[in-house]
């Protein structure tokens, strides 16, 4: 295969896997920020928690990888409900500064807590046999894990899209994102809706965190390291939009991968340039509401 094509395929493949990780983790943030206008900088901490729970489950309790992912996601989703009710709810009407400060505080506490319990050394997870090694497609061999990530990501995109666009609950969420007060005025319990959405979003973040271990390794600083990325995906895609988050994840995932492949030292630069350009032209992101 010609050199350029090989590189292009590699970039696309790795970029797609990266994009799926970004999407899975950031989509919950996008919907909850769009729904409640709440800046949640602790979202990365939920993802990190998911990662560490998967580590514990697989290494200390011998649970298999896939089951650990599911259990960790559900667990984090449930725990997040307490956080939302107790700490976030009083600040829905407060300014974004207060929200930023509160959630940064939570993120710091999470980093400290996980450092205490797990130590600062990067963690890894034992992968099942069928996720190790490569899958050979003739012209190239691709790492199975990333292929799995892509397939899982696409599956979740489909499921979420269906839930969002075709179910009654999805319609109610969209209505509440459009006009919260009017949604309440037609009998929709927006508070409950939000709690449910938040729990699902946090659970997805935890899933993303668990999936990320194999890609990036897991340290307690995961919470803030990747937070900026999630925020960028959300801001560029537009708050409260599934489609927007997906497009932004794809764009940023592939561009970042391409940047790192082609210009090793300056690779990280490009996604920020794109972010600034997109936001200057469309301040609400691709599909955000103004």
């Amino acid at each position: 295969m010609p050199q350029v094509a090989t590189i292009a395929v590699s970039i696309l493949f790795d970029g797609l896997a990266y994009a799926m990780f970004l999407f899975i983790t950031a989509v919950g943030l996008s919907v909850t920020m769009g729904l409640m206008n709440f800046v949640n900088l602790a979202h990365g901490a939920f993802a990190m928690a998911g990662g560490y729970f998967v580590v514990s489950l697989t290494q200390s309790y011998g649970v298999d990888f896939i089951s650990s992912l599911i259990i960790a996601s559900v667990l984090v989703g449930l725990i997040s409900i307490r956080f939302e009710r107790r700490l976030y709810r009083p600040l829905y009407k407060a300014g974004e500064l207060d929200q930023v400060l509160l959630t940064i505080g939570l993120a710091f506490m999470a980093i400290a807590a996980f450092t205490f319990f797990y130590g600062p050394i990067p963690k890894s997870v034992p992968l099942p046999q069928w996720l190790q090694g490569n899958v050979d497609l003739g012209f190239r061999a691709f790492p199975r894990y990333r292929a799995f990530l892509i397939v899982l990501g696409l599956f979740l995109v489909a499921v979420l899209w269906y839930g969002f666009e075709r179910t009654n609950i999805g319609a109610r969420i969209r209505a509440a994102v459009d006009n919260r007060r009017m949604a309440e005025s037609v009998g929709i319990n927006v508070d409950l809706l939000f709690t449910v959405t938040f729990a699902i979003g946090s659970g997805l973040a935890a899933l993303g965190g668990g999936l990320a271990i194999q890609l990036f390794g897991l340290t307690p600083y995961f919470a803030v390291l990747y937070l900026v990325l999630f925020l960028i995906v959300v801001a560029v895609g537009g708050l409260g939009s599934l489609k927007g988050t997906l497009m932004a994840a794809l764009l940023l995932g592939i561009v970042d991968t391409a940047g790192k492949y082609l210009i090793a030292e300056a690779g990280g630069f490009f996604i920020y340039v794109i972010t600034v350009i997109v936001l200057l032209l469309k301040p609400a992101g691709f599909y955000g509401r103004q």
Binding site: R172, A175, A183
Partner: peptide
């Protein structure tokens, strides 16, 4: 609700 269809506006 601008992003919902007419039918969805009623259904919710």
């Amino acid at each position: 609700f601008p992003s919902l269809t007419l039918r969805e506006n009623l259904e919710v």
